[in-house]
């Protein structure tokens, strides 16, 4: 099997949530001498990216995404067991939650799921989370990323409160903040000093992965 074929098989295995095919790609990669890091990023992860885009278009649904996630987890674990883990960059931790006064956690749940599938630890604080709890969780888990979701114009002010608390605690430079939710915009992010407005789950993943690349 050519290198291209190996990567394509790995990608398809994730898209089709096929464990056997995922293992077939791994064995073929070992036989052909394909770098396992490359297999992970350009094969399996590329498949997750396709699924993320399809989810955003309404072409696949959350349970299918979760099935694929399980295969991704299995493939990642297999690769990790074959590699010197010190070579793998720590992918970081995201603290995420829906802000206080807001019970809308569907979008936040999807973001948490998708970020998790990309190998980032996710600390999901749930819904109706006070600003201080985000800060406490970032400290406790030494998180590099903080994501807050607000679906109401009346609750998005908590995102501003989070930024203020980070400033007060001198943590502004040590954590990347992402904000999301229907009434939230890049202009709002700029106004309150958040690092990024994330439009959807894929946008969040891309921001996190790009940032991790820079670390």
């Amino acid at each position: 099997m050519s290198k291209e074929k190996v990567l394509e098989t790995a990608k398809t295995a994730i898209i089709e949530a096929d464990e056997d095919m995922a293992m077939e790609a791994l064995h073929a990669a070992e036989a052909e001498g394909v770098e396992l890091f490359e297999l992970l990023s350009d094969g399996y992860s590329a498949g997750m990216k396709v699924l993320g885009d399809q989810f955003g278009m309404g072409e696949i649904f959350l349970p299918e995404l979760i099935f694929a996630t399980e295969v991704m987890k299995m493939a990642t674990a297999e690769i990790e067991s074959r590699l010197d883990m010190s070579e793998i960059k720590a992918k970081g931790t995201l603290v995420i939650g829906t802000v206080e006064g807001d019970v809308h956690d569907i979008g936040k749940g999807i973001v948490a799921s998708l970020v998790k599938t990309n190998g980032v630890d996710v600390i999901d604080l749930g819904r109706e989370v006070p600003a201080q709890n985000f800060i406490d969780a970032v400290k406790e888990h030494k998180a590099e990323f903080l994501g807050s979701s607000a679906l109401l114009t009346t609750t998005m002010t908590v995102q501003k409160e989070i930024e203020q608390l980070l400033e007060d605690e001198g943590m502004k430079d040590s954590v990347q903040t992402m904000i999301g939710g229907a009434p939230v915009t890049q202009r709002w992010a700029d106004r309150i000093g958040a690092d990024k407005y994330c439009e959807d789950a894929s946008d969040t993943v891309n921001f996190i992965m790009d940032w991790i690349e820079k670390l």
Binding site: L62, P63, I66, F67, T69, E70, D105, I106, K108, G109, I110, A112, S113, K116, V122, D124, G126
Partner: peptide, 10 residues
């Protein structure tokens, strides 16, 4: 279900 799904409890 937003909690169950990420846990794989489909």
């Amino acid at each position: 279900w937003a909690v169950l799904l990420p846990e794989g409890r489909i």
